[in-house]
Simulated scan of single mutants.
Amino acid sequence: MRTRNVTPHAGHIGYAQSSGLPGAPNGTPLTRTTNNTIVQNNRNTTCNRVPGPRPAGRQCDEYPFASTLEGGGAGGPARTYGQNPPDPCPETMPDWVVRRPIPVQFFNSKGVSMCMMPGHDNMRGGGIVSWFYTKNRVHDGDTFYVKGL
């Protein structure tokens, strides 16, 4: 899957993969899940734990996607990137989210990446993931790759 026309979303995926998370082509694949309990647990372990209020017009994005077995509920450290604007993820995150410097280098192959981004980009990115699953007939238990920036 390649995330087009959603630069913040694709950039976040690229940073996450650079930090060691799975899903990059020629690496360890992601595994889709359609189990709603797993999907909700992934969300509850990541972005749903970030207290509000959120910055105006911004939403929390997570990678690996909540719809994967490698999502936040699979365990491991949470991370985000940069310090200040124009860094990709300048917003304050809770203490349990480790801030990694840019350029991003390997951190851990387990865990989750979280980044606040424009809400329209986050929603479009989620729509692209859903489209990708449907268009490519990616079913429960199927593996796939994602190319970030």
Rank of each mutant, 00 (worst) to 15 (best):
K110P: 04
T46D: 12
A78K: 14
M123T: 10
R124A: 15
T92P: 12
T45G: 09
G148I: 10
P118R: 04
N41Y: 00
H9W: 11
T33S: 01
P86W: 10
N35A: 02
G71Y: 05
L21D: 04
R54M: 11
I102T: 08
T92G: 00
I102H: 00
W131F: 00
K135H: 10
K110I: 03
Q40P: 05
D121G: 01
D142T: 00
V129A: 05
A16Y: 09
A24R: 12
P55A: 14
P88Q: 11
G11S: 12
D95M: 01
Y133V: 06
P103N: 10
Q40R: 15
P118I: 06
D87W: 02
N42M: 07
G125T: 10
T143I: 01
G14L: 07
G71K: 06
T92A: 03
N42Y: 05
V50K: 09
L30E: 00
L69G: 02
K147P: 08
P53S: 12
R4P: 00
G141L: 04
A56E: 13
P118F: 01
F106A: 11
V39K: 07
P86A: 01
N44T: 02
G127K: 05
S130N: 10
G14A: 06
Q83E: 14
R99G: 08
V6T: 08
W131T: 12
K147C: 10
K147N: 13
G14D: 09
S130L: 07
A56P: 10
I13D: 07
D140T: 12
V104M: 05
R99S: 05
F107S: 07
S109A: 09
Y133A: 04
G141Q: 11
M123S: 13
R4E: 13
D121W: 06
C89I: 06
N26P: 00
T34G: 09
V97A: 01
D140C: 08
E70I: 08
S130H: 06
N122S: 14
V6H: 01
N84Y: 02
T46Q: 12
D140H: 14
T46P: 02
E70P: 04
F132K: 03
W131R: 15
N108D: 15
R54N: 14
A74N: 12
G14F: 07
R2D: 13
R43E: 15
M1A: 10
R58D: 08
P55S: 14
A16K: 05
D142V: 04
M123C: 05
S109D: 15
I13L: 14
S113V: 08
P53D: 13
R32Y: 05
K110S: 02
L149W: 13
R137W: 03
F65M: 13
D61C: 07
G111I: 04
C115A: 04
G126R: 09
G20N: 00
Q105K: 03
V146C: 00
T33D: 04
G127M: 09
M123G: 06
W131H: 06
R100V: 13
P8C: 06
F144A: 05
C47H: 00
V112Q: 13
T7C: 09
T134N: 11
G71D: 10
N48C: 02
S19K: 02
R99T: 14
A78L: 00
G76W: 01
G72T: 12
G52F: 09
K147F: 12
G27W: 11
V98Y: 00
D121N: 15
T92K: 14
Y63C: 08
V112T: 15
P64C: 01
G111R: 08
A10M: 06
N41C: 03
G125I: 12
D95A: 15
N5M: 11
G73A: 15
G119H: 02
